[in-house]
């Protein structure tokens, strides 16, 4: 699905206009029905899939939050939340004016930006360990943690993202400001990763966030 396409939610019939050039998934913010799955609009001929509710995790970013990355303004239009055993990751899907998107990833006040698409990891899976050098085509990173993804929640418009069920392992590696995020499920579907960079939150000039000292 692509920019400016109008879709009708198969769950509540609400009308939505897509804002990404390439939309992987769209979860209706009103009824949580998945209106777009793997780039294809859902209709009555396919069973209705409803996404799990999004847990409230005290993040101060929200859908509608705006910011600036490398001089280009963006707006947050979707969210994937990974619940890890001892951590969590909010993949906020952000769109620029011309329809290109990127992931702004946040966990406990720490931010990273992943611009590209998922890429296949072709080296040995055994290298995906903490404190190990993980070779990547444009330079190695050092493994920081291996965690099991216990829960996954989706909301709004999202870039392509193939894994929508929990049970996967995630691995984070970094070197300096470079960071890589791997997802793998033993014996299923191979290993893919996103490459990005850590960004101080002040540099993103976020606006329309939840109030500073809100604590509900």
């Amino acid at each position: 699905m692509s920019l400016h396409t109008r879709i009708t939610c198969p769950g509540c019939q609400a009308q939505h206009t897509l804002r990404l050039r390439l939309t992987g998934r769209f979860i209706c913010p009103y009824c949580r029905a998945q209106a777009v799955v793997d780039g294809i609009a859902q209709d009555a001929s396919r069973p209705l899939i409803t996404a799990a509710p999004m847990p409230d995790d005290l993040s101060f970013v929200q859908i509608g939050t705006t910011g600036v990355l490398d001089g280009a303004p963006f707006e947050v239009i979707g969210r994937i939340r990974l619940q890890l055993r001892n951590d969590y990751k909010n993949f906020w899907c952000a769109v620029r004016k011309e329809g290109s998107g990127f992931w702004m990833v946040e966990s406990f006040g720490s931010f990273a930006v992943y611009n590209g698409a998922w890429q296949p990891y072709t080296d040995l899976a055994s290298k995906l360990r903490s404190n190990q050098t993980i070779p990547l085509p444009d330079g190695p990173v050092t493994g920081q943690y291996v965690e099991r993804c216990e829960g996954l929640a989706l909301l709004g418009e999202l870039l392509p993202w193939s894994i929508v069920e929990p049970g996967w392992f995630v691995v984070q590696g970094s070197k300096g400001a470079r960071t890589a995020f791997f997802m793998t499920k033993p014996n299923v579907g191979g290993i893919h990763y996103l490459l990005g960079k850590k960004v101080p939150v002040e540099n993103l000039k976020l606006a329309n966030t939840l109030p500073w000292n809100e604590w509900n």
Binding site: A52, P53, M54, P55, D56, D57, L58, Q83, N86, Y88
Partner: peptide
């Protein structure tokens, strides 16, 4: 725990507990 339900029961005494940290709380 799921969704926006931030209440959990103690597995030992069944006391209802409201999670201050909401979904962030893991233990």
């Amino acid at each position: 725990m799921s969704g926006t339900n931030n209440i959990i029961s103690c597995p030992a005494c069944n006391t209802s507990l409201t999670l201050r940290g909401k979904a962030l709380t893991r233990a």
